[in-house]
Design a protein around this nucleic acid. Structure first.
Length: 581
RNA sequence: GGUCCCGUAGCUCAGCUGGAUAGAGUGCUCGCCUCCGAAGCGAGAGGUCACAGGUUCGAAUCCUGUCGGGACCGCCA
């Protein structure tokens, strides 16, 4: 049930019949016709811009179209009134029975209310986290993980077939660094005193790995050169790190469908195949790049390289795919990886990167555009910085000072639900302030609490109802007579519930899960408002003394709110609270 | 210098495919518990949507330019 879609369809029918009757020309483009809730409730329940959009192509005055459309629409029993306003808006008021039917629809569908078929089963690959397997996940990764996960859920809820994927950078030089660092910890485990030179990872999370390596191979690598142990320790270390990362993600409630190894691209011909594909399209050549405009790096010198003609697909400069020593640049395996995604048959790709990879977006889009010949869209979502605070004071992260804040630190302190919700209360491309004290505060200022409180309050009512011997199971509530829900505060809640399916589609289309969080806050707000009206007007309370039928109708509305909150929180990966503690 | 992101109330931020008198929270002023959870609700005050052009019936939203903040910028991923 999507009321806005229903009414939009009704408008389309009315316009079609006007065309059939010769009042409008045939074949008008209706793509820009909208039916949406007006900002100002005084303008009714829904407004359509049809008359204004069609005035020009139809060579008619907006008012004339609007008048005729109004006459058609009011024939439908759902439309209580349609009046022309402003420059040609048609403001619609829906019959109260339409709003009264909303809780029933919610209770019948459960958390499936709002699920959309918009995606039409499109296969979408969402790649996120993809942190290097060289250490535990930190706060920045956490935001990417939460965002990507919620986006994936949102797309699944709106009719897409989603694959959640992690790209494991286990093929580059940073894994050698990891292996050498583990080797030092291994020596340490054998009682040697070691120092960590620049270019190694001194973090103590590798102590256990060194110990484990000792347990596995004993003293076999002591005093031996890299040629003996590098490859094997690399393998051992990345496996350990991935186990660590998997455990971190699990704490946060993130579960990937697939881990794709960068290493699996080497020596298997996959990179070569991807580059050959580009080459066949005439997009690979030997050449020399211009120096960067403005500040030229100190050590700049012209150099002939193997280049990808990414400028043919919207990039600003062509990009090197081979280093001067003949090895691939990091870009080459990324091309191969995305080539692989395309050949796996995905209809759309989404990459979630940290903002520091912003400069990488255009070339990646160029690569996918070239490889798929423009068929597969790639959307790259960048997650901005997380700024940490403690009681309003900035909290600087520093590996040296030991104040390096990991995902584990955050989740252990505030829990996965709070972490996830808070990380979704900002647009992905806006920086996020995360205050360890404030996110646990129980006040309206804290949206996590505010939404959970609304949910818990209703659960409390349901418990009271049961004590009073009133049946409040969903099947019973769905059959309740809702014609008594007539107060503006009650209808406001019903109207907000009716917006949920529409909100899901907008959020999914824009790839913006934060919209769900903001919607839930608004829904909670309407519920709290209704609740408090009950203080002054006893007839608005959910529990009506000695009147089970009236109680059930009001509880049906309240219960529907918890259902939608559960559905919304479910997309965000947050568990609803039965009671506040 | 180039590319991308951001600039909306004192502060932190929403704002849908361009739509009507631009909204929340917070802070300030004032009200609401004999009553389902007041951890809440209501009212008031608070705006040159950074600036200047352009497109449009209509611009916070789209285009161009300027200013300010951030990220990135050929053999690191």
């Amino acid at each position: 049930m999507n009321l806005f879609a229903d009414i939009r369809a009704l408008v389309n029918e009315a316009l079609a019949s006007m065309a059939a009757e010769g009042m409008l020309p045939e074949g008008l483009d209706l793509a820009n016709v909208t039916v949406e809730p007006p900002r100002d409730p005084a303008h009714g329940d829904m407004a359509t811009n049809a008359a204004m959009v069609l005035a020009k192509p139809a060579r008619l005055k907006p008012r004339d179209i609007a008048e005729a459309l109004a006459a058609k629409l009011t024939d439908d029993p759902r439309i209580a009134s349609a009046e022309v306003a402003g420059p040609g808006f048609l403001n619609l008021r829906l019959d109260v029975s339409v709003w009264q039917s909303v809780p029933k629809a919610v209770l019948t569908a459960g958390t499936e209310f709002g699920r959309s078929q918009m995606g039409q089963g499109q296969k979408v690959n969402v790649e996120y986290v993809s942190a290097n397997p060289t250490g535990p996940l930190h706060v920045g990764h956490t935001r990417g993980a939460v965002f990507g996960d919620a986006l994936a859920s949102l797309l699944a809820y709106s009719g897409h077939e989603v694959t959640r994927e992690y790209y494991v950078n286990d093929g580059g030089a940073q894994v050698d660094v990891l292996a050498r660092s583990v080797y030092l910890r291994y020596l340490e485990a054998h009682g040697q005193k070691v120092e960590f030179p620049d270019g190694t990872y001194p973090g103590d999370y590798l102590v256990d790995v060194g110990e484990a390596l000792k347990a596995k191979v004993g003293d076999a690598y002591i005093g031996k050169g890299e040629e003996v142990w590098l490859s094997e320790i690399r393998e051992f270390s990345t496996e350990s790190m991935m186990n660590l990362i998997r455990a971190d993600l699990k704490m946060l409630g993130v579960e990937m469908d697939s881990f794709f190894s960068e290493k699996s691209l080497y020596g298997t011909g996959l990179i070569e195949a991807a580059i050959a594909d580009l080459d066949a399209k005439g997009l690979i050549y030997r050449g020399t790049l211009e120096p960067p405009k403005g500040k030229v790096p100190e050590d700049w010198e012209p150099r002939e390289q193997t280049l990808f003609r990414s400028t043919a697909h919207g990039d600003d400069v062509d990009r090197p795919i081979k280093k001067s020593d003949g090895g691939w640049t990091y870009f080459a395996p990324d091309i191969a990886y995305h080539y692989n995604k395309v050949t796996r048959g995905f209809d759309a790709l989404i990459d979630v990167f940290g903002a520091d990879h912003g400069g990488y977006v255009k070339r990646m889009k160029a690569a996918v555009s070239a490889l798929s010949e423009g068929r597969v869209p790639l959307d790259v979502k960048l997650t901005q910085l997380v700024k940490l605070y403690k009681n309003g004071k900035p909290f600087k992260m520093s590996k040296r000072a030991g104040t390096f804040v990991t995902l584990r630190d955050v989740v252990e302190q505030v829990g996965p639900d709070v972490t996830r919700f808070v990380m979704l209360t900002r647009k992905n491309d806006a920086t996020l302030d995360f205050d360890f004290a404030k996110v646990l505060e129980q006040s309206r200022e804290n949206p996590v609490f505010y939404v959970q409180y609304a949910h818990a309050r209703i659960c409390s009512v349901l418990r009271k109802a049961v004590e009073a011997g009133i049946a409040v199971d969903d099947a019973t509530l769905a059959e309740a007579d809702l014609s008594g829900l007539t107060h503006a505060s009650e209808l406001a809640v019903a109207k907000k519930l009716a917006e949920w399916p529409r909100l899901v589609e907008i959020a999914a289309r824009t790839h913006e899960p934060h919209r769900v969080a903001f919607y839930l806050y608004d829904l909670a707000s309407d519920l709290h408002a209704l609740w408090n009206r009950g203080n002054e007007e006893p007839s608005l309370r959910f529990l009506q003394d000695d009147d089970a039928a009236a109680s059930q109708s009001k509880i049906a509305l309240a219960r529907a709110v918890t259902v939608v909150i559960s559905a919304g929180l479910g997309i965000l990966g947050v568990a609803p609270a039965e009671e506040m503690r």
